[in-house]
Design a protein around this nucleic acid. Structure first.
Lengths: 217, 217
DNA sequence: CAGTGTGAAGTTGTTCACAGCA
DNA sequence: TGCTGTGAACAACTTCACACTG
């Protein structure tokens, strides 16, 4: 009877969500190598983590593994891409067309992973009016005209000083999720999703680990 | 191991390290506004976190707050920058001069935070020989000639397929820490520091939170 | 009997409660 | 009284143990 309705709708822990794209990358390699099935110990071994971690993470998706065999590679790739939101294309506006902003627009397969940047905004006359890979850059003032209900995601790559006010501008005009590349912790209402990706934070962690290992040995 | 000695040399939790650059950004704002002291409740309020979280995080540094007053802004900035390794300049080589790699080289901000990229490596003839903001790009084969004991950090922005082998090349030639922008989990010896910064992982978390909030309301 | 799936134990990080100080 | 600083209670995440299945 109700085989599926029992398991879903749990909150997925953030660490698990962060591991899933890694599984996905490995699975694609496995697929290229022609493997039809892959087991959790195998994945775990490649990534040097605990096998039950893998099964627990995968249990949040609706794919089921076969005992003694493992998971079928191709359906698992499909399910993971779907689960992670990489299959449906979300539209986003980007604020702050500096070097990082430009890279995100031009790059690198964000579209492949379900994110399409449909316009960029800045106040620098040098970039306004430019087109990068088909994405046009406008003055921030144009934002209110161009926004529409399909755009739920805003990418924040502006200087620290204007981060909070730019975030508020986004929210006031209907943005529901902010991908924040500044080191500023944004103050936003509860119903707004913020994903912080501060390179400096990661740099800090790396320096600390490196320097403490150096002084130890 | 033994009784707890003095205060220093504890292992700093990674979440704490990640919060510190945010404190730093806020402190710089406070300094600009002319504030001489700032208290933990004040910082906590700005960042919407628990005040004791702030005091606990700051207790890992060697700055001490004044009762009833808070922390002196300028010395705290100095200490945080020093503690996080942002004051001394570390040299790094970058592997994979695609659009992200190029952005990291050009993004002067990294130098401000203690990381200087002194060379880039790729196999694409179009970029080899180029100079971006004074940073020269070489063929990967040149890496062995150019490496020296001052270079302890390698930045990995290559395509997924060659991530592991490039990491091994780095390690074999003396790199001690790898800033990994690929979604691949690298297999490395214990004494090597790896900092994973996969944009796709963050994207996955953001999509999940956004889509689950959408379906809830 | 190797591998999935899950509740229970263990570990790590966060929040609380309170002592001490100016 | 308001704030720092810390040990103790609590929550989140990870690892373990084991029942189950082909």
């Amino acid at each position: 009877m109700g085989k599926e309705n029992k398991k879903k709708n749990r909150v997925v822990p953030e660490p698990a969500l962060r591991r899933m794209p890694c599984y996905l990358a490995q699975l694609k390699v496995a697929k290229k190598e022609g493997q039809k099935y892959i087991s959790s110990p195998k994945i775990a071994n490649i990534m040097d983590i605990d096998p039950t971690q893998v099964t627990k993470d995968l249990s949040y998706t609706k794919i089921a593994g076969k005992t003694r065999v493992g998971y079928e590679v191709e359906p698992l790739i499909e399910e993971l891409e779907d689960f992670l939101g990489f299959k449906s294309l979300d539209e986003a506006f980007l604020f702050g067309v500096g070097s990082l902003g430009t890279a995100l627009i031009r790059d690198f397969g964000l579209k492949q992973f379900g994110l399409n940047i449909s316009a960029g905004f800045d106040i620098n006359p040098d970039v306004i009016g430019q087109k990068y890979d088909g994405v046009e850059i406008y003055h921030v003032d144009k934002f209110k005209e161009l926004i529409n209900p399909d755009i739920k995601i805003g990418i924040l790559t502006v200087p620290v000083e204007v981060a909070q006010e730019t975030a508020e501008l986004m929210i006031d005009n209907g943005i529901k999720a902010i991908w924040n590349f500044t080191p500023v912790i944004l103050r936003v209402p509860d119903n707004i999703v913020v994903q912080n990706t501060s390179l400096y934070a990661h740099l800090a962690v790396m320096f600390n680990r490196l320097h403490s290992k150096e002084s130890k040995s």
